[in-house]
Design a binder for these strands. Structure first.
Lengths: 148, 148
DNA sequence: ACTCAAAGTTAGCTTTGGCTAAATTACTTA
DNA sequence: TAAGTAATTTAGCCAAAGCTAACTTTGAGT
């Protein structure tokens, strides 16, 4: 109940710097990960991932999607020629798959903790990009123990 | 162990849109929250929060700090005249305090879960901006139960 | 009281990810 | 098969948050 009002154990400045840098780095990959995951979903669900649908899901204008797809293509995660359909590359598929696993791990963990499914889904969306491998392992173990 | 390979329960599109929007919104307040919290820390630790020190802690160039302080001032979270010292407003102090509480809640929860302190500290930095009140309450309850 | 180094700011550039409006392409259907 | 509509892209704008280089101010130490 009684938290010390200020950071009492000031880990080294370098360590803190590394943390902030890694948060900034994570932000740069968030967009890519969210897109690849949604594209995989849409292909699975409807047979194709159209910019229109991507825009609608993200709540964003279509030209924004076009612009971001260029980045995915630059990073060799999708195949995409103007006006043609979007395909994931092998690398894109793998990234999508690991993102989805991570997403589910976080959601299931939060639910196992007792958080309502809709809030779990919501919070997972923001949290998933910032969870280290160690934390992910602990999440999985916890969920597994809770409902064997 | 056997996760469905795709999102099986496709919550409504609107709900998903709201989630992505709220993640984008959270990103916009992250900087503000991190700054206010660090400024409070520095004032407490050293008596003042100098742009130099803020830059060093965040691993960022000084002019970046100057620019961001302008935003904090615009949002009435700090008092700051050029070349003069930085003060938190009442609103700034309150924001700093609630951010710090939230940060500690997340760190302590992760540690209670069994995650190593340094990784807990690291992950919390990214996670803290994306946890809802409901999740925060559950985190607190869990930590409290673990070590009474 | 002056000087000068350190701190802080300004100017101006870059990238990222939003947007709208306008142009282009593809597809359907009459 | 030709036209019209819907989808997509292009062009060009904005704001945020990073950077370097150059300038200004402060204040500490002779």
């Amino acid at each position: 109940m009684t938290n010390p009002p200020f950071n009492s154990a000031p880990r080294s400045v370098q360590e803190q710097v590394r943390q902030f840098e890694s948060v900034r780095t994570a932000h740069q990959s968030e967009m890519v990960e969210d897109y690849v995951e949604l594209i995989a979903d849409l292909i699975h669900l409807t047979g194709s991932a159209r910019p229109k649908d991507i825009a609608e899901r993200f709540g964003v204008a279509q030209p924004t999607v076009t612009k971001n797809l260029a980045r995915l293509k630059r990073e060799k995660l999708i195949l995409h020629e103007p006006y043609r359909s979007i395909q994931l590359t092998e690398e894109g598929r793998q990234l999508a798959s690991s993102c989805r696993k991570r997403h589910r791990t976080v959601v299931e963990f939060l639910i196992a903790l007792g958080i309502s499914p809709s809030v779990a889904e919501h919070d997972a969306e923001g949290i998933e990009h910032h969870v280290s491998d160690e934390t992910l392992r602990v999440f999985r173990a916890f969920t597994h123990d809770k409902k064997p």
